[in-house]
Every structure is written in structure tokens, then in C-alpha cells.
Design a protein around this nucleic acid. Structure first.
Lengths: 152, 152
DNA sequence: TAAAATAGTTCATAATGTGAACATTAGGAG
DNA sequence: CTCCTAATGTTCACATTATGAACTATTTTA
């Protein structure tokens, strides 16, 4: 039989998770304004940090939205000159998406801001705290991943 | 002069925050489906956990949306019979919002689910881990709050 | 080679949210 | 008491975010 968790711990935990969630949301909104891009387009740009070329399908998976939504987002980014389409030479169904030089500059600017925010948070702690925090967040994320089983 | 943070720590931290953020989002979506309510209406119901009566203005502040949006959300919840409007006897500009009995049942059901999810996450750890996790999350949330200064 | 699968677009629709204009009511300055 | 201002909410027009079905055009595969 599983031992039950302290009630006040549960309450505190819920409040903390909610607060972190809200902080992230507010940061997203702020970034959207700061960089003059709708949130969806911003998220789309950011995932180009990982790979040089992406397909609409791949973007759809990474952003967790349906493909028709990706079409719309890409329209915006192409019109603004941040992303360009390239035909895949091997499969003409596929359009490869890649950052333009301007898009690369923009992304770099965005990533610098994001890094500075995260860096600042970490700098608010002493090295020992940072290490335990990261360990704990890792533990938490594994646990939250596991709990997804309850959602089927 | 501030000492700089390890680069791989920064990367790890960014990834963990992003993952937690996504988990929260996915849970919201799931709850919306599970309880047959749009996300905004669900969020609105949940804030009635704190107080018995709320005004449209108060809801606007708690949900962090403009008042016209609140009007819309309340229309849905009133039509579904979860919330009722009561005239404030002292100030007839104000409409007080309160849960109907059906709304209370619904909210209880929702809160039970939310609690069970959070409980499950905590139960994945030993008590010692729980304590340090909460301490660290608290530290993190304070720090993230402080960093909001960078966003003005 | 015909049928099934894959990649993307278009379109209709819904949810989420903002901001301006408006009506109503409360409250304070003269 | 009256007029001006502030506060509360609604309505409307618009933008953004997102889904799902239908469609086109290309592979793949059976």
C-alpha cells in the first residue's frame, strides 16, 4: 500500500507548478512582443536551433500542431523573409524549410535573450544550489512524464 | 564580477523548463477534453476554489485576460449551468459570480483529478526527495519572479 | 500498374484573446 | 444637489491559434 503524501506538501506543489507555468507563459508573451512575431511563429523559429532543414511534417510534430496549422505559420515566416522553401531533390512531395540569413540573425537574437533569462535565473543561486536544482528538475520531469499514463 | 554558469548546465536547464512547460500544457488540453469544457472555462472554474464570490473584474485579474474576454467565458459557464449571476446589493454596477451546486460538483471532480495527478508525481519520489524538490522549486520560482525585471 | 500511403494546401469552423465604444451606476467637488 | 469622473460590464470588430475534412500531387508497394 502506497503511503499518502502530506496534504500541505500537495498544495504547495500545485501552487509552485502553477506559478512556474505562468512564468513561462508570460515570458512567451513578452518575447512575442519584443521580437514582433506571433507566438506560434516564434516557437517555429526556435525549433530551427536543432536542425538545419525541417519539413512541414517535422515542424508539425515538434510544435505539436496539425499540418494545416504549420502551413499557416510558414506563410507568415516566409512572407517576413525568415524562412525559405527548397524542393527536396529526392522526393518532390517534400518541401524543405530552412532559415534565411535574416532568419538566422533573428533566431540568434532570440536565443541570446532566452539564454540571458535562464542564465540570470541560475545566477541567482550558488553553484551547489544549481546542481541540486537541476538534479531535482530532472527527477520531476521524469516523474511528470511517467504520470502521463494516467491520461489515456 | 559575476561568475558565469557552465554552458551545459544552461542547456540542460532550458530543456528541463521547456519540458515541464509542455507537460503542463498537455495536461491542460487533456483536462479540457476529459471534462468537456474549453480550456478558458476550465481555468475560470478552477479559480473559484479560492473564493465563494468573484466579480468579473476579479476573474479578469486572476485569469490575466481583458474583461471583454471574461464576459464571453462567463456566458459559456452560465449557459452550461455551472455559474450563476447575483446582483451586488451595495453596488448595482457589480455582478457577483458564484458556483451553482452543479458547478460545485464539477469543480470538485476537476480538483480531484488535478490532485491525483500531482499526488502521483510526488509519490514517485521518496519523502526526502520530495522535501528537497519543494525547496528547490520554491527557490526557482522566487528566482524566476525576480528575473521578470528584465522584461519591461 | 493499380491501390494505398505520404506531404502539403485550402477552406470552413471554433476557441482564445485584445481594444474601442458604449451604457449604467457610484461617488466626490463645487 | 448637480456635474464630472471613475468603475463595472457588455457589445462589436478584429487578430491569432488551432482543428479537421477535402483535395492535389507525388511516392511506394503489393
Amino acid at each position: 500500500m502506497k503511503k499518502t503524501v502530506n496534504d500541505s506538501q500537495l498544495k504547495q506543489f500545485k501552487a509552485l507548478v502553477a506559478k512556474l507555468f505562468q512564468c513561462c507563459q508570460e515570458r512567451m508573451q513578452y518575447q512575442s512582443e519584443k521580437f514582433g512575431l506571433p507566438e506560434a511563429e516564434l516557437r517555429c523559429l526556435i525549433i530551427f536551433g536543432d536542425e538545419r532543414y525541417l519539413t512541414a511534417k517535422g515542424i508539425s510534430l515538434k510544435l505539436n500542431v496539425v499540418k494545416s496549422r504549420v502551413t499557416k505559420i510558414l506563410q507568415g515566416l516566409v512572407k517576413k523573409g525568415f524562412i525559405q522553401r527548397i524542393q527536396d531533390p529526392k522526393d518532390s512531395r517534400i518541401t524543405l524549410l530552412t532559415l534565411t540569413p535574416e532568419g538566422q540573425r533573428k533566431l540568434e537574437e532570440i536565443n541570446q535573450f532566452i539564454d540571458s533569462i535562464h542564465m540570470e535565473v541560475l545566477l541567482n543561486m550558488v553553484p551547489e544550489q544549481r546542481r541540486t536544482l537541476l538534479k531535482n528538475l530532472d527527477l520531476l520531469s521524469v516523474s511528470m512524464e511517467a504520470v502521463k499514463e494516467l491520461m489515456d
